[in-house]
Nucleic acid binder design. Structure first.
Lengths: 215, 215
DNA sequence: CTCATTTATGAGGTTTTTCTCATTTTCATT
DNA sequence: AATGAAAATGAGAAAAACCTCATAAATGAG
């Protein structure tokens, strides 16, 4: 095993039966390896090595890489949307919700650089995940539209454009500097029809009110 | 070989020596196969089969897939930028240039769905190509900024955001309907700081003036 | 048309990755 | 501690992909 980061799944299963603990080890290792080599280039043995298991052990749990990716991506989606939701409680202003959700997502990527990477790969390979994310995003967009703040019709292309901006940020600056986070949030708002001036103001206020006490 | 589309490289080498013709066959086949299976998943034999050549023939021309991708992507970049440039002659209004270039690019993708796909994969694997595209885009952005039409600072993230919107369009609607092209052009302009209203007007006028007589 | 040169071929050797399963080890219950 | 069940192991068979090279075919200059 190399340097240990997250342990997302391990944490959820300490104390549980061995079967669950080993499965978690595979899931956590898969995140690391998928993120560093990419899903396609990953070999089963890369994952089992990372988890300090024999290659044969993999087949006690999954048929193939795809099955594992599904589990990983769904787990990440649950964790990440859970965290973001927790922060958005009570916010009713559409644009603020969108800006905050975007910023929070990217901030999570700063601390757990591997997660977003793998989640985004998963979105395009695991169909069920795609539709879950779409629904999730759509909600906040509708709120902003009802309030007259967004000039846009919600369709699949729009959702993908937003995801594409997030992906671009991750690709170009995996460290996820504040500058990158801000530019991405503003980009998303602009795409939705917010004027540049308002977008800048909004993002600044979101940073001050909701994201000041963080690394 | 499956159904024949483009023949971009073949066309450029009919009459030339056999070596060039075979190389072109490999390049054209590579486009088809890369586009349909993705670069990573493509096997050498997929390409030689498509070109109706023996697998050994590949190694008379290239060391590996990467070398082939470089040739393919550079060739596509030359062809595509050449076509777009030809249409932009004399246009001095920055936003119009950006909108037209975007629309033209996507229209090319409509007729040759494989090209943009492979070009975009190439951009992230062939470094020389990346910098070429960046320079190319940067020019038009600077024009628009000097004219006071864009509210934006040109950096690498911005360039990648624009590319990301184009990729999103290709991913979601490879047929590249007019609706998709328009929404993408408007998205790019919004990202650059054009107001939604102006973006819509601009794109409409570009469609009328420059893109009316096409399929 | 001839023939030296260039190019194409594909069988098979090599390497890489997958996947199985008989055996060993660990677990957790009594 | 004993014991049966559950899990892990890793050697090696099987499959997939790569790449070489001796031979065959095609080319095109004269």
């Amino acid at each position: 095993m190399s340097e240990t980061t997250h342990q997302l799944f391990r944490e959820q299963t300490t104390g549980k039966k061995k079967r669950e603990r080993t499965r978690s080890a595979l899931l956590d290792s898969a995140i690391s390896v998928f993120a560093s080599k990419g899903f396609e280039a990953t070999r089963i043995i890369d994952i089992t090595n990372h988890a300090e298991l024999a290659n044969g052990t993999f087949y006690n749990y999954y048929q193939d890489k795809d099955e594992l990716l599904r589990d990983v991506a769904v787990g990440l989606a649950v964790e990440i949307t859970g965290r973001i939701n927790a922060e958005m409680d009570g916010l009713s202003h559409g644009p603020t919700r969108v800006a905050l959700a975007t910023a929070r997502l990217l901030r999570i990527a700063r601390h757990e650089p591997e997660w977003l990477n793998v989640l985004l790969e998963g979105i395009f390979i695991v169909p069920e995940l795609q539709s879950a994310i779409v629904q999730y995003l759509r909600q906040d967009l509708e709120i902003g539209i009802e309030q007259g703040h967004f000039t846009v019709t919600v369709n699949l292309l729009l959702i993908n454009q937003i995801l594409a901006l997030i992906r671009a940020a991750l690709l170009l600056d995996p460290e996820m500097s504040d500058a990158t986070v801000r530019q991405t949030c503003e980009g998303v708002l602009r795409l939705l029809g917010t004027t540049p001036r308002r977008a800048t103001k909004l993002v600044t206020s979101v940073f001050e009110r909701h994201l000041s006490g963080e690394t």
